[in-house]
Design a protein around this nucleic acid. Structure first.
Lengths: 140, 140
DNA sequence: GTGACTGCAAATCATTTGCAGTTCG
DNA sequence: CGAACTGCAAATGATTTGCAGTCAC
């Protein structure tokens, strides 16, 4: 895999974004730095980065695929309303869960696993008075 | 939601298939009984059945969405080679895993969750001499 | 009778691919 | 130099949608 300006920018941008962007969201972002970069190039590179294990291609609920540069095991919230994905900090349960899953996977000849929780993100949730928006430790 | 011949047939067929079919796989199957049924009708009904909680629409690895009439919590194997989905019988670990996940979900305001293990299915796995094809209890 | 549903065909949207020119190693 | 890569535009493929006729209740 050669080094190119585009490829470097794509991976860097994907890493800098916490949003699990779709290919075209990423493309829009990249246009700021590389006004010539094409959507096709973004797709091609994401595919290669995924193949090289530098990014994950996530199926999700929505129409478009989403990409994540964080390849360590972690869970996502999939919002059925807006289709976006969010990282879920599971706290203590996290370790327990991933220990269990990491044990199970090889037993059935699987390389990895994905866990997705379905529920509206804060933006799409009807306002709840007793759950302040920015409360620390809340799950997105 | 009205009763129609098509809707009944779609749900019945989806339930009878163990394969988590795509919309068009299901359509092909249905053509045997209902030679006139259209792919659009299959899509529209699957969408409604999913909305009604009678079926799950699964993202998966591949291009197409897959549908599952088994709405009880269970894990899938997603084969990266052929794109198919398979139920995974997790045995004892199953209970433990779902207890944990079922506990976690409400804590972060999620209605449900999905677990997907990534690994080649038997058809796509290079032949392994010491793992007979039809061995009972093997994980697809 | 009226709203929900169907088949059909056209439209939409995400993703992939062919091509000719360019860049990396 | 040769292979890998890029931008562009066209092609593909899955899913959705508009429409006019039909069916469920």
């Amino acid at each position: 895999m050669n080094q190119t300006v585009q490829r470097r920018a794509i991976l860097a941008k994907l890493r800098s974004l916490r949003s699990h962007p779709t290919a075209d969201e990423l493309h829009v972002e990249l246009l700021e730095q590389l006004p010539q970069i094409s959507l096709g190039t973004v797709y091609r590179n994401l595919e290669q980065l995924a193949a090289a294990g530098l990014a994950l291609r996530l199926g999700g609920t929505g129409r478009q695929k989403r990409y994540d540069a964080d390849t360590a095991p972690h869970c996502h919230r999939a919002c059925p309303a807006c289709g976006r994905l969010f990282d879920l900090p599971l706290g203590e349960a996290h370790a327990e869960l991933h220990r269990l899953l990491g044990e199970l996977a090889p037993k059935m000849q699987c390389e990895s696993y994905r866990v997705e929780f379905l529920g509206r993100c804060r933006d799409c949730r009807p306002e709840t008075r007793d759950v302040p928006k920015k409360k620390e430790g809340s799950y997105e």
